[in-house]
Amino acid sequence: MTKAEKAEYIIEELEKLYPETPIPLDHKDPYTLLIAVLLSAQCTDARVNQITPILFKRADNPFDMVKLSVDEIKEIIRPCGLSPRKSQAIYTLSQILIDKYDGEVPENMDLLEELPGVGHKTASVVMSQAFGVPAFPVDTHIHRLLTRWGMTNGKNVEQTEKDAKKWFPKELWNKLHLQIIYYGREYSPARSPKLDVDFITVKLGSKKVLQEYK
């Protein structure tokens, strides 16, 4: 099966499974999404969704956020892990948004990536999910699955993103990256994957990949 044929199969099957793709992180606007995605680094979405209501009750915009101290932010977000680094990033980026962008999150990939704590993946999520701009954020689920499915060589997430953008239609990127995440969580986890449910990997995986399941 060619990569183009694989891509078509993936699109068709994921659309059957996940015709609707709600955003996993609870938020109400670009700023709260940005903070939620920043917090999700090395933390589950479920845990983030437990913590953000507490944080956003105190501050759900940059103007209120900078009224808190870094230590106050750190104490609230501690369950998400990496709280010293994340709390400093949240405080500093909030101040930058006030100083440079009138408190608004910029609708620009390069400007987002300049913010503290905001890497390419985080910026891509905000661009796609907050602003509807086509992007293909690659997290560990997507990197793992597109490698298992033979859509990329799996050397790094940068290459995986390039390959995803090459083989999947641009108008589907924003929805498809969420569909792949949902599939990974439900059918093809990193640990103890099962061939009896992970039907896409059974269909597309190489002999080497399928051996890893045994």
Score class of each variant (00 low, 15 high):
139 D>R: 08
81 G>S: 10
154 G>R: 03
5 E>L: 13
64 D>W: 08
75 E>M: 11
183 Y>F: 15
28 K>F: 08
49 N>S: 14
136 F>Q: 01
71 D>E: 15
69 S>F: 10
179 Q>Y: 05
75 E>N: 13
98 I>L: 11
122 T>K: 01
118 V>H: 05
43 C>W: 08
210 L>E: 07
134 P>R: 06
26 D>Q: 12
11 I>Q: 02
8 E>I: 09
75 E>F: 06
89 A>F: 13
162 K>N: 10
212 E>A: 12
213 Y>A: 04
94 S>I: 03
104 E>V: 10
73 I>Q: 00
8 E>M: 09
66 V>D: 00
170 K>A: 14
19 P>F: 02
197 V>L: 13
130 A>N: 03
101 Y>M: 05
160 T>A: 13
86 K>V: 07
199 F>M: 11
158 E>A: 13
124 S>N: 15
34 L>G: 01
183 Y>H: 07
104 E>Q: 14
144 R>L: 09
90 I>N: 03
71 D>W: 09
112 L>S: 03
199 F>S: 12
36 A>D: 03
2 T>Q: 10
25 L>C: 10
62 P>N: 04
52 T>M: 12
170 K>R: 15
99 D>K: 14
19 P>Y: 04
36 A>Y: 00
205 G>I: 01
5 E>F: 08
38 L>I: 06
74 K>H: 08
91 Y>Q: 09
68 L>E: 06
182 Y>Q: 12
37 V>R: 00
200 I>G: 01
195 L>S: 15
83 S>G: 08
116 P>L: 12
130 A>D: 02
23 I>A: 10
186 E>G: 12
84 P>E: 10
25 L>N: 03
97 L>M: 11
72 E>I: 08
96 I>A: 07
75 E>W: 06
130 A>Y: 00
74 K>I: 06
198 D>L: 06
7 A>H: 00
172 L>T: 12
166 K>I: 09
196 D>P: 05
205 G>D: 01
187 Y>F: 15
175 K>C: 09
155 K>Y: 06
39 L>I: 07
36 A>V: 02
116 P>T: 11
15 E>I: 08
193 P>W: 01
139 D>C: 10
214 K>T: 09
214 K>P: 04
124 S>H: 03
118 V>C: 09
200 I>T: 02
190 A>H: 14
192 S>D: 14
37 V>D: 00
75 E>D: 14
127 M>A: 10
65 M>F: 05
188 S>H: 10
147 T>P: 07
